[in-house]
Design a protein around this nucleic acid. Structure first.
Lengths: 340, 340
DNA sequence: GCTCGTAAGTGAAACCTTTCAATACGTCAG
DNA sequence: CTGACGTATTGAAAGGTTTCACTTACGAGC
């Protein structure tokens, strides 16, 4: 911080140094074509000299809004979400908006803090993968700030959203396992406060019933979160079950959990898929590269982000905007973890 | 956006609605204890009624700075960086600062845009994993905004930084391979504009020479980036070499590249480590879960983020702050990808 | 009854930028 | 030579919050 003593230089200081009015300085900044080349050069020299840095707060205050959009995601360390973020990023690249990423880490309080913070910053809009899509906080935020829900939906159509059909995805996974002859299947994931988890479980249940199998054949192994470590820990619990009750296949609520489970199984000498077939969800890049390449329900991650960003941009700029719910249909990528 | 017609409610509107002065409203917001309970309740009711949302821009304008810190990272989709971000996050959790994440995607222009944007927002400080640590832009930014370099260093001590010793890491990797009898080793990574790549390569070269091996035994396979896909593509190039010239081991500049390479090898029927031993860098969680568990140079990812954040906090708040360069020493985690 | 102290509340000024109506100054057509 | 027009520049107002020196009200102490 070289700027010892006095505060940073402002347009007023620049104007004084260049011997012009502050209106002219502003013109150099915002409409350089309206300023004669000579004056422009003089002003730019003064800016350089004083180390002038535009004050975005003042600019925003005047403009009424900032040139930022925020994406509040559930978990930065899940590659699924960073791939979604990549899609958002590409969609916003040629607007002059900056994208700020925030991670709620599945904590509703942190999510709320970020949402309020972004709203108070008067961001152009917010993309959100909510911990709980039904929270009334979302309505409250959306009263003032365009808000698009990513990778989730709400029953009503009060929001734009871009999401994959998680129930359908859950069905796909279990149908695949049932086709391969499994009749005792574990659903591994949690907590059930996460909508994705509920829907995927729901789909699993539906497919299980439709196959005419008894309800108690689908065992829920509830985890505290959806991380790698949670998957490993679920593996311990699965391994601890008596052989009679032990499932022959596991459908995991996401790939991280599936990979953790897979790793634990390998470590304790169980074979995948012979001893336990595994299906994941999301089809992150690492799924295909796993110890046993992982069968997974693929979501179009980038497209999902892109679609969400486009909805947000429309909502933020188009007065005739109407809310829209875009649903992507997932598909199943079969790999070795289920091919016995 | 319920707020049809008029602009958002401001403190003035709240004051009018509650029948108090705007100073009192501000007191309710910032020093509630100085306001009588009755008045406080009245004001809060008015805020509720009008849907008042504090305007952070105006607040910042007054305060001179925001309550945000930014981390500009090289690549969100690399789990190494999100793990670092996790460490930063934990370190800042109990300050009242919010952390905004930005991804430069290895593009100096995007990096510059984010840096300037954060600076113009008058953020409290910036954490940066730079594309090019020697860029003079960093000096320019640091003239006004506290800036800490993460996972990189500069020769001079003009910045705080927290980094692992990449040269040492590179040495570790190659020493490990040499110990296992390899004398033709590929260094896979790029572009060399990335400092990490240069340093790791440098370390590899040093270890190779120290082992008394001829320089041309260390083959550089330069990739355009450090992604999964770059690793696969490098695999094709490696496989295309004549048997005589083909290395028996590869040291990859990061785990993503290593995993891509590993996947390609497996696909074309080459065995790891028998046909090609592989060492990665970073030891991300997925390294241990890979098709062939990956030997990797471990960096303390979380600690690195935490240390960087603490340096930044100190620089931002402590007038007696002195720049400090913290270096972590990496270690090698040997797994199956090098055990033949 | 008067002064003093404290607590509660007030309101103007400051923060910095952008906008826009107004001004100044040439130039050109008539 | 005048009037009209266009270009370059000006300066004041607005935007919402916080701060701080100030006023008011009220009860305690003498």
């Amino acid at each position: 911080m070289v700027q010892q003593g006095g505060r940073d230089a402002s347009v007023v200081d620049v104007a004084a140094a260049a011997g012009v009015s502050l209106g002219t300085v502003s013109n150099v900044l915002n409409r350089p074509d309206r300023v004669s080349p000579a004056t422009r050069a003089k002003v730019q020299a003064a800016m350089q000299e004083l180390g002038f840095v535009r004050n975005e707060s003042a600019r925003q205050l005047r403009a009424g809004h900032s040139r930022v959009i925020g994406y509040v995601m559930l978990d930065v360390s899940n590659p699924f979400f960073t791939d979604v973020a990549g899609g958002i990023d590409r969609a916003t690249a040629d607007s002059d908006l900056s994208l700020f990423l925030c991670t709620s880490d599945n904590d509703p309080r942190r999510e709320a803090a970020y949402l309020r913070n972004l709203q108070q910053q008067r961001v152009q809009g917010i993309l959100l993968t909510p911990v709980d899509a039904s929270s009334s906080l979302l309505d409250e935020i959306a009263r003032h700030t365009p808000l698009v829900i990513v990778d989730r939906t709400r029953d009503d159509d009060s929001f734009c959203s871009a999401a994959a059909d998680d129930v359908a995805g859950g069905r796909l996974a279990v149908e695949h396992l049932v086709e391969r002859g499994h009749t005792r299947i574990a659903f591994v994931g949690g907590p059930s406060s996460i909508g994705q988890v509920r829907d995927r479980h729901q789909g699993a249940r539906e497919a299980f019933r439709d196959a005419g199998l008894p309800d108690d054949g689908l065992v829920a192994i509830t985890t505290p979160g959806l991380t790698f470590a949670d998957g490993r820990e679920a593996g311990e619990r699965l391994a601890g079950l008596s052989e009679r009750r032990r499932p022959t296949a596991a459908f995991c609520a996401n790939d991280l959990v599936a990979l953790g489970l897979l790793q634990h199984m390998t470590e304790i000498g169980r074979r995948v898929p012979e001893d336990l077939a595994i299906v994941g969800f999301d089809d992150i890049d690492f799924a295909a590269a796993a110890a046993v390449p992982l069968t997974s329900v693929r979501q179009p991650r980038g497209s999902l982000g892109r679609a969400a960003a486009e909805l947000l941009l429309d909502e933020a700029t188009n007065p005739a905007h109407r809310h829209q719910q875009i649903t992507f249909t997932p598909d199943l990528v079969a790999r070795r973890s289920t091919q016995n």
